[in-house]
Every structure is written in structure tokens, then in C-alpha cells.
């Protein structure tokens, strides 16, 4: 199924959970590197350059949010946050720290593998999309090369932010509901947490819009979803 074995960095302080998740995720076809705390995580990031990071919020040396922000400084690797609670604070804080998705314990390896694969997927243009590069005003989105330009300036988007923008772009100005975006970008059924979309839209606006407080490209359709306009 996979051309290359994907490198997964597993950051978890409980050694039993770490051991069992490594075994279970290796069964799912990943190559797993373990880290027991934040500093091990950051050094493993430099040594192994993983394809995806599974990051527990509760770490002995520092909290997962700051580790995530540290990772985001020089990497767009997909990060899945393992939160203690699903209440607003942990989830939104994790997403705002730059996480691409979140899961809560008890984690089951099959579900976890599905989440990881969804994040590693590439943007898939629909059949009628012939153009490789879509233009929205001063924004230009390269579906093939993953390069987003605003004027002549190249924008640094994470993988997930790019796929979200590409999904909006492929709707060609039409409204994308949160559920649609959750399904297409994160691979959720219809029970995904729409806060994931909302926080990513906020992050996307900070990078794409000249004035993120008054977005001109990524526009909210109240109660319905979002759309991308030129």
C-alpha cells in the first residue's frame, strides 16, 4: 500500500503505552521512533525527520503545546496531539499551537493509523479540474507543486493548511461546509470536531490574508461553512 515506510515519532511519557503503541503501529506498517519527553522529541525531530508526529500533551519536562510550537518553527510535519480532555481549552490550545489534528485516549491503533494516513494523503483534484494552478485574485495555488503565491511572494503553509486551501480552491468559489472539509482534508466521517476546521481557517487566514481580521479571500458563510473568493 505504501511506497516507502512512513516514519512516525511517538512522544509519550508512559513507557507501557509507548511500547504497546509502537508494536501496534508497526503492525499498521509504520516505522516508529520513541521519545519520552519534550527534549527527546525535539532531538529526534532533528535526527530522524519523521513524516508524522504523535505528541502527548502531558509530558514530564514541558507541555505538549510548547513542544508543538517549537516543532512548527522549522517544520511543516503533520502533528497529531494526544489531548487529555476534549474540552475547549486543550483542543483549541493544541490546534492553535500548530497541531493538525487531535485524538483522545483510549487510543486504538486502527483508528490512529486511519487518522495518520488521512493527514499524509495528498490533495486530490477532481476529474474536471484540468488546471494545475488556480488563481484567486492575487492568490495563486499550485495543486501539483504545492506552492502558494500571493503576488510574487511564496507563502509557507503546512501540508494540512495547503490541503484545506486547495479544497476551498477546487470548490471554485462555492461554499464548503465544515463537514465536507473535515471529510476531505482530515478523513473524518460526519462526526468530526468542527473546531479543527475553524482553528485551521484562522491559521490559514493569518498566512494568506493581508489583514486576517478582515479576510478578503477565506470568507465565512455564516452557519454554512467557508468559501474562497478572488
Amino acid at each position: 500500500m505504501w511506497g516507502v515506510t512512513r516514519q512516525l515519532l511517538l512522544v509519550e511519557d508512559d513507557s507501557r503505552v509507548r511500547r504497546v503503541l509502537r508494536m501496534a503501529l508497526e503492525d499498521e506498517g509504520f516505522h516508529v521512533t520513541e521519545a519520552a519527553d519534550g527534549s527527546q522529541c525535539l532531538s529526534a525531530m532533528r535526527e530522524h525527520s519523521p513524516d508524522v508526529v504523535l505528541l502527548d500533551v502531558m509530558l514530564p519536562d514541558r507541555d505538549g503545546f510548547s513542544v508543538c510550537r517549537e516543532i512548527r518553527k522549522d517544520s511543516d510535519v503533520p502533528v497529531i496531539m494526544v489531548t487529555a480532555r476534549t474540552d475547549s481549552h486543550d483542543v483549541v490550545a493544541g490546534l492553535e499551537a500548530g497541531a493538525d489534528d487531535y485524538v483522545t485516549k483510549p487510543l486504538v491503533s486502527k483508528e490512529l493509523a486511519a487518522r495518520i494516513r488521512a493527514l499524509l494523503r495528498r490533495a486530490e483534484p477532481s476529474l474536471e479540474q484540468h488546471r494545475k494552478r488556480l488563481g484567486f485574485g492575487d492568490l495563486s495555488i499550485g495543486l501539483d507543486d504545492g506552492v502558494v503565491l500571493r503576488g510574487d511572494e511564496e507563502l509557507a503553509l503546512t501540508r494540512t493548511e495547503f490541503r484545506l486551501l486547495a479544497e476551498l480552491a477546487m470548490a471554485d468559489g462555492g461554499i464548503c461546509s465544515r463537514e465536507h472539509l473535515l471529510d476531505r482534508v482530515w478523513g473524518y466521517g460526519y462526526f468530526g470536531d468542527s473546531r479543527i476546521v475553524d482553528v485551521h481557517i484562522r491559521r490559514l487566514r493569518v498566512k494568506v490574508e493581508r489583514d486576517p481580521a478582515n479576510p478578503r479571500h477565506v470568507v465565512t458563510a455564516r452557519g454554512l461553512g467557508y468559501r474562497l473568493v478572488g
Binding site: 507501557r16 503505552v17 504497546v20 503503541l21 503492525d27 483510549p106 486504538v108 486502527k110
Partner: peptide, 20 residues
């Protein structure tokens, strides 16, 4: 509930490894 989550994670994934 939170205290139960961690051992439960170990149990569920051990079960999955055995099932595999």
C-alpha cells in the same frame, strides 16, 4: 476516567497486537 484511560490504551492495543 482519566486514570483508566492509560491502562485501557495499553490493553486495547495489546489486544490488537494479539488479534493481528
Amino acid at each position: 476516567g482519566h486514570e483508566l484511560r492509560t491502562p485501557l490504551t495499553t490493553m486495547l492495543n495489546s489486544m490488537q497486537v494479539i488479534k493481528n
